[in-house]
């Protein structure tokens, strides 16, 4: 028999876990995309040396497991004097991870902007920064928006791993509850549903944001 009602007394635990996951997701999505945008711009338009630095960062992160990155930051860095709380370590690890993946995605968007657009901006007298922010970014992000938002959701789901360094996120709550009442099926079932709900909610939010950002397409 299944006893979902046994979870009710732990609803506070689940809610607080959910809150932590949502907070970390919102924060790291913003920071990660900003980091990715900066790195993609450097990789697409920067000089040879700075392009190489970005490449090393991107390949390093994309070719190692997230949990190892997280453990390195949380358990490894104290050896060189960087003590971070579990929450801080998670925030940094998630941001760096999303930053690397989004660099590649955003760079594809930048590469899709025709040379003609950039030349048109140039002959109108715009400087490079103005060309980036006014002419390049919006159409570039429009092209890769679905891929970028999917990556953000992947990182949100991947954040379950941070329960391993005792950040009290949603997965931590599930572990805690099932260790108290041994209702593993119920506990993880509900947790899975909560993650699913969170994903759907995020997609809705991204879609709404996309409609606003790329309103010129909707005008058709």
């Amino acid at each position: 028999m299944l006893y979902f009602s046994d979870l009710l007394q732990y609803s506070d635990v689940f809610l607080s876990g959910l809150k932590t996951t949502v907070e970390l997701t919102v924060l790291t999505t913003i920071l990660g995309v900003v980091l990715g945008t900066v790195c993609a711009t450097v990789r697409q338009y920067g000089n040879r040396a700075s392009q190489r630095v970005v490449s090393v960062y991107v390949e390093l992160i994309r070719n190692t497991p997230f949990i190892v990155q997280l453990f390195f930051i949380f358990f490894g860095l104290p050896a060189i004097g960087m003590m971070l709380s579990p929450w801080e370590a998670s925030m940094i690890a998630l941001t760096i991870n999303l930053g690397a993946y989004s660099t590649e995605i955003i760079r594809a968007g930048l590469a899709s902007i025709s040379k003609g657009q950039i030349e048109a901006a140039k002959v109108l007298g715009l400087n490079f920064r103005q060309t980036l922010t006014r002419v390049i970014f919006v159409p570039a992000f429009e092209k890769i928006y679905p891929a970028l938002t999917s990556q953000c959701i992947i990182v949100m789901l991947g954040s379950a791993v941070i329960s391993q360094i005792s950040v009290q996120d949603l997965t931590y709550a599930a572990n805690l509850v099932q260790s108290r009442n041994f209702r593993a099926f119920e506990s993880y079932f509900v947790t899975a549903l909560l993650y699913l709900g969170l994903s759907i909610l995020l997609r809705f939010a991204f879609n709404a944001l996309g409609k606003r950002l790329f309103a010129y397409r909707a005008s058709n």
Binding site: A121, L124, G125, L126, Q130, R134, V138
Partner: peptide, 30 residues
């Protein structure tokens, strides 16, 4: 750019701006 204007074969209008915004961009920010 202040004394030489250029028009291209492929128009190169900025797709995310209205016609008015396209024309107003350089006068406002340059």
């Amino acid at each position: 750019a202040l004394s030489v204007g250029m028009i291209f074969q492929n128009f190169n209008l900025f797709p995310h701006m209205t016609v008015g915004e396209n024309v107003m961009l350089a006068p406002t920010i340059v």
